[in-house]
Design a protein around this nucleic acid. Structure first.
Length: 558
RNA sequence: GCGCCUGUAGCUCAGCUGGAUAGAGCAGCGGACUUCUAAUCCGCAGGCCCCGUGUUCGAAUCACGGCAGGCGCGCCA
């Protein structure tokens, strides 16, 4: 509907220009929006305000030129100009009804668009080191990334989901040393634990598992550490995969850092192409000239001792992403890595990758509250709540929902007690209940044979007369543009707000019937009932589609 | 010291990317169940949108300067 009005406005301006009423006008610049007050119509535009300067005329005067043309349009009941220069549109009631039939026709694909034009996007998220279980921060990243992918797909992008496994380098070695030390400590409690090692209880668990499978005592310490590192990593990776799977997140590619090195891509990516010219040697190390592209300073990629930095792998990995031909890439990182954005962007530009090809989304920290106090978490000390524990306590649906109730750039407080204890107050149940309630009404109608299931626009036009009904239809009509906007702005959290609003509107509508039987969906009047049942079916569809983007179940009854 | 993020109701946060009278949930108080599902609804109360200056028809939103909190500023990963 909004798009229709935009195109009507464009045509109107063109026509006014042709007729000489306006100087040939510049494109765009104006917006059409839903005003907060219903006095200002279903839609409003600031078109005249934006034209005022270039036309050198007061906005209200421009409005008075455009108004007669707009009034001819059969879409509108009323068009008004309002100071300081808004135009308010009141859409004819009947014109809303096609939205309902459209929803019913399209069903699960309502909301789909070709906004993305089939372009390929690579979304990399979670990418946790396989040195420990996933924590709440990873859960937030997983929920955000996965829902973003679903949104992008619905908006017409071709999406690849990727998990980068940091399975090379020192942290895996440290995992091995930590596990080995715990194994030693079974016999010898005084065996020293490595500095900066991993302290979680799971390390001792790994030691038990690995020593049960492998006779560590028959190996040299060095060999045993390697076994602990390798098997420990495999076990943790399996654990991560299992948790993510339960969290309804599936990746297309698990990209191993080790494979980057073993395949030779790593070496090649730093020695060929435009980037090779930006790499130089200084003080016995290899540097890359990222400062030419906005980084604070040049960065080391190979240290004096001959080993490569983490950043070198990152360059190589992102180059590989680019060479795989994606038209854009999105990374989701913890906010503590924000300092790396400029250098990664700079490295990409050094290779000739266009600015803006890579978008990095940061997620702020998740704070956990329990018994009214913040639970301090430390990965190194091993005191943190895992994603698995959260899922076990509150369920996947609630967990996924809470992770998307805040903008990714805003810190998130999760009060586990609250989600657990007050299940009924949880917003996810509120939305699911709307779906269950709609289902229940439809079930009842089916049983009583009120509903023949044949849609008829005329029926809707004749019998959907309530303001509340029109408001619901308008809101559902926004869903496709919401999906597009979320894909554009990378803001999946808006979906949880939309669903809560839609559910609230439906619950309110339903409750009209508790006071006045004529306002129930199923009433004495068969035609009114049928029209309302179509509306309810449409609501159920939109709620279900929204929940499906969140990968949250849509129950038939609760 | 420099950079990024955040600052909106008692608490946790939205605010459609510059629009008209700033919203929701929770917490508080008061109401509605012989119902198409009360996991719901209705009402009341609650505001210096951190402060200041600027940009313009118009600012919670943009710019600059402060203040406060968080996170980063390695030849660590």
């Amino acid at each position: 509907m909004k798009k229709r009005i935009i195109s009507i406005l464009n045509k109107t301006v063109q026509r006014a220009a042709q007729e000489g009423a306006l100087k040939s006008p510049p494109e765009g610049g104006f917006v059409v929006e839903v005003p907060s007050s219903s006095d200002h119509g279903h839609f409003a535009t600031n078109l005249c305000l934006t034209l005022a300067k270039s036309q050198k005329q007061p906005p209200m005067k421009i409005a008075s030129v455009l108004l007669p043309i707009l009034k001819e349009c059969p879409l509108f009941e009323r068009v008004e100009a309002a100071p300081p220069g808004f135009i308010n549109f009141f859409v004819k009631r009947d014109e809303w009804m096609p939205i309902v039939t459209q929803i019913l026709e399209e069903g699960a694909s309502y909301g789909k668009s070709d906004f993305g034009e089939g372009k390929s996007v690579l979304v990399e998220f979670v990418s946790a080191n396989p040195t420990g279980p996933l924590h709440l921060g990873h859960g937030r990243g997983a929920a955000l990334g996965d829902t973003l992918c679903r949104i992008l797909e619905l908006a017409g992008f071709n999406v690849g989901r990727e998990f980068y496994i940091n399975d090379a380098g020192r942290q895996i070695r440290l995992l091995g040393e930590s596990v080995f030390a715990r194994w030693q400590q079974i016999e010898n409690p005084d065996y020293p634990f490595p500095a900066g090692g991993y302290h979680g209880e799971y390390i001792a668990e790994l030691a038990r598992m690995i020593s049960a499978e492998t006779d560590l005592a028959s190996l040299s310490d060095e060999e045993a550490i390697e076994v602990c590192a390798s098997l420990g990593k495999d076990i943790m990776l399996d654990d991560i995969k299992r948790s993510l799977n339960m969290f309804r997140v599936d990746f297309d590619v698990w990209y191993s850092e080790t494979s980057l090195h073993e395949s030779g891509r790593f070496a090649k990516s730093l020695s060929s192409g435009a980037i090779a010219e930006k790499i130089y040697e200084k003080d016995g190390a290899l540097w890359i000239a990222t400062s030419e592209h906005g980084d604070d300073k040049d960065r080391v990629i190979r240290k004096q001792d001959g080993s490569y930095t983490y950043f070198a792998s990152d360059i190589s990995y992102h180059r590989d992403k680019w060479e795989r031909g994606f038209s854009r890439a999105i990374d989701i990182w913890g906010a503590d890595h924000h300092g790396y954005i400029p250098r990664v962007q700079a490295a990409l530009e050094t290779m000739g990758v266009p600015k803006g090809w890579l978008s990095v989304m940061l997620i702020q920290l998740v704070k956990l509250w329990q018994a009214g106090a913040e639970v301090k978490m430390s990965k190194r000390a091993g005191t943190y709540v895992t994603l698995q524990e959260l899922m076990d306590e509150v369920g996947v649906d609630a967990a996924r929902f809470v992770f998307l109730t805040k903008h990714n750039d805003s810190p998130l407080d999760v009060d586990v007690d609250l989600i657990k204890k007050q299940e009924s107050d949880n917003p996810v149940f509120y939305v699911q209940y709307a779906h269950a309630r709609a289902s229940s009404i439809l079930r009842k109608a089916q049983e009583e044979s009120v509903f023949n299931g044949i849609e008829d626009e005329k029926l809707l036009k004749n019998y959907l007369k309530l303001e509340e009904e029109i408001a619901l239809i308008r809101m559902m009509g926004d869903f496709p543009s919401l999906v597009e906007e979320m894909a554009k702005s990378l803001e999946p959290h808006r979906l949880t707000y939309y669903l809560q609003d839609l559910a609230a509107m439906f619950h309110r509508y339903f409750n009209l019937g508790t006071k006045n039987p004529e306002l129930r969906v199923i009433t004495e009047d068969a035609s009114v009932s049928r029209a309302r049942l179509f509306l309810v079916k449409a609501i159920r569809t939109v709620v279900a589609n929204g929940l499906s983007l969140l990968a949250i179940t849509a129950p038939e009854q609760m």
